[in-house]
Design a protein around this nucleic acid. Structure first.
Lengths: 202, 202
DNA sequence: CGTGTATTTTGACACTGTCAAGATAGCTTG
DNA sequence: CAAGCTATCTTGACAGTGTCAAAATACACG
């Protein structure tokens, strides 16, 4: 149980992560400060520093949890492959991003990744989730569902970039709003499909 | 025009923008504070507030300048269209993003766009740059260089998302590093081309 | 029981953005 | 030229922030 380590607070680390997630969802990264978080957990300002080296460290831990939930979305159950299936996948990805915008910001935001001290655990989780996607593409190819000339790595990189860019677009609303999501997703799926399917080969 | 300490700085607004760009390039957004900026410009802490309502307002102004330089990159001179041309275009885009990473972060980062008070001027500049890209695609179609069934808006949205996602990937180094840029760009260009060219139509 | 160690607190420091009020310079009038 | 007005800049202050060092507490174990 959680009584494995019964200290003063019980399990402060867990509480901090949960409370941080709430704070993040309600007020955005801007509203998430170490001090407020500590107050929220009913603990003094510097208590969190015994569970997280840094604010950065805390944020990495949250992002890490985001990645674990994320992998579930990436799963395309069934070996069958079609444009409809790709459409569904694209929609799932974008829905996750939009519905967990604060998490998504943390997971893929430059804030964490550009700084030198990004957690090894986070790196591992992030790379794992990409490899998961890559392996899916590879397996399609092995099953002959995909044109043989395709480079799975490059394809995965580019299509993931598209998904990521689409998510950023919609979350930030730079060029797009959520109304246009449907056709937007379909166009992406169509492009992904064209690039995959053998029949389009010259 | 001496740099002696005179009460009225010649053109403080301009100086602030320039100094901010330097500070941004050297130390990232993290190192850019209003107070440091003021000090850098040889002026008191609150002087900048007579030229920019906010820190946000300042950042918007910088991003705005970024967009103006950005449009130059988006220009595909000549009406000719080929996969090579698209490759070149993709490379140009990514080079701009990588070589002006701090600007790019500001221009497209969630930090500015998610907050309610993003400058109208910035919005205008940003939307203008997208429309520029969109118009290019439209003109290709009008010149019959592109399959007629293509929806220029959707295509522009998705391909721009791809470019944006690729840029973010490389800048942040989440899934990619700069070494892989060449093949990465080529794969994207290939995908863009497939989606454009009439011969792949069923 | 006592001791050590894991956990939390208090105090402090150097920052940050930004407001209100006062000081100065330069342009615009008479 | 002088007077005044306005744009510009400064000083002072306040409420925050992340984080370190040292002191205080509570638990686990011998």
């Amino acid at each position: 149980m959680s009584s494995k380590t019964r200290y003063h607070h019980g399990d402060l680390r867990r509480t901090l992560l949960d409370e941080a997630a709430l704070l993040l969802r309600d007020e955005g990264e801007h509203g998430l400060s170490m001090r407020r978080l500590a107050a929220r957990a009913g603990v003094s300002r510097t208590a969190p520093y015994h569970h997280f080296k840094d604010k950065q460290d805390l944020l990495c831990a949250i992002a890490e949890e985001g990645f674990r939930r994320f992998v579930g979305v990436l799963t395309l159950d069934g070996a069958e492959l079609s444009e409809q299936r790709l459409q569904k996948f694209v929609r799932h990805y974008l829905e996750f991003a939009v519905n967990n915008a604060e998490y998504y910001d943390l997971m893929f935001g430059s804030h964490l990744w550009k700084s030198a001290d990004v957690t090894e655990a986070l790196k591992a989780e992030a790379h794992g989730s990409f490899r998961f996607y890559l392996n899916q593409v590879k397996s399609w190819q092995q099953h002959g569902l995909v044109r043989s000339g395709l480079d799975p790595l490059r394809y995965s990189q580019v299509t993931w970039s598209t998904l990521h860019g689409m998510s950023r677009s919609i979350i930030d609303g730079v060029y797009l709003d959520t109304d246009a999501m449907g056709p937007f997703c379909d166009e992406a799926a169509r492009m992904f499909w064209r690039e995959l399917s053998p029949e389009t080969q010259a």
